[in-house]
Amino acid sequence: MRSMPARADTTSLVQTALLLAVASVIGYVEAVMWPPLPVPGLKLGLANIAVIIALVSLGPARAAAVSFGRVLVVALASGTVGGPVFAMSLAGAAASLAVMVALRRFGPLFSVVGWAVAGSAVHCLAQLGVSAVFVGSTAPLALAPLSLGLSLPSGLVIGCTARLLISRIPRPVLSAAGR
């Protein structure tokens, strides 16, 4: 007979896998089909919706699995593993997740919209930083205003969409998975 914690673990594992799959598909479609914006590495970042949902419903560890797993799967699918684009994606994902996890600790002071806006801005800055390292010049950092300006609507769209989707998830699912 299965114990309750084991069942909860299985539930969260399945949900993590589902969110990783969704994030990977969205990330790949965006990487291949979405017209790139005029800043290195900058995209709308719709895959981050899955990361935010994972952070709310499954916690930081599972959200990290979804975020980094998505970066790896998209890189494998698009043939950019180990290259500069992969490094930029990884840095952006790490910075974004770190900020969102930090904001999550403040409880109700920040909603998922705030997490998404902050995560989006930090994601862009981290990518520009890595881009500057690869170029060996501070020239990419001059794109920071444009990058930050574009990250704001992007973060708002992602945050509002994530909030809408989270409100549709049945509460027993959220509580069973670990919040």
Binding site: L103, F106, P108, L109, F110, A118, P145, L152
Partner: peptide
């Protein structure tokens, strides 16, 4: 959006405006 969210949005806008 909470007050904290508004503060984050303001911070991002201010950061962009400082660099512009």
């Amino acid at each position: 959006m909470t007050r904290g969210d508004h503060a984050i949005v303001a911070l991002v806008v201010a950061l962009a405006l400082v660099v512009v």
